[in-house]
């Protein structure tokens, strides 16, 4: 029961156009595994936001997805600059993304709030100059 199916992805920090490939892959796998559409949607949106954040702020990172029958755990780890003020970063509309990223339709300050909205649990561990690890859990109802 507690034996998880594991997927590991490397998020390329230099390639803005390939960002999202890991999320799309997870979506495909969860669909093949027969998870409910709402669960798949929430997992893939939360993961995509995390992927984009890692590309914008941290030159990429790694993503691990653990699939259990009753929950899906997403762990995103980067070695970027870290988040200075997590409470501030969690506020809708707050963003430190550069204008070049905003021109692509990102940087609206919705990433972390969306990740929280679509998951049951979300933990952020971040150390300035060292990196950030975000763990999210989506329950399968």
């Amino acid at each position: 029961m507690d034996e998880a199916l594991k997927f590991h992805f490397v998020i390329d920090g230099d390639n803005f156009t390939s960002a999202g490939e890991a999320s799309v892959e997870v979506k495909k796998k969860l669909r093949q595994l027969g998870f409910p559409p709402d669960v798949i949607r929430r997992v893939s949106i939360a993961m995509y936001e995390g992927e984009i954040n890692m590309v914008i702020h941290a030159r990429g990172g790694v993503a691990d997805v653990l699939v259990y029958p009753d929950r899906i755990v997403i762990i995103l780890e980067d070695h970027g600059p870290g988040i200075e003020d997590i409470d501030l970063a969690m506020q809708e509309g707050y963003s430190t993304a550069p204008d070049s990223v905003r021109a692509l339709g990102f940087g609206a300050g919705m990433g972390l709030p969306n990740m929280k909205r679509y998951t049951e649990e979300m933990h952020i561990e971040s150390t300035l100059g060292v990196g950030t690890t975000i763990t999210m859990v989506v329950n399968v109802q």
């Binding site: 949106i45 995509y48 936001e49 984009i52 692509l104 339709g105 609206a108 919705m110 969306n114």
Partner: peptide, 8 residues
């Protein structure tokens, strides 16, 4: 046009 907004 804000992609996070659209996705959500």
């Amino acid at each position: 046009d804000l992609l996070s907004w659209v996705m959500g």
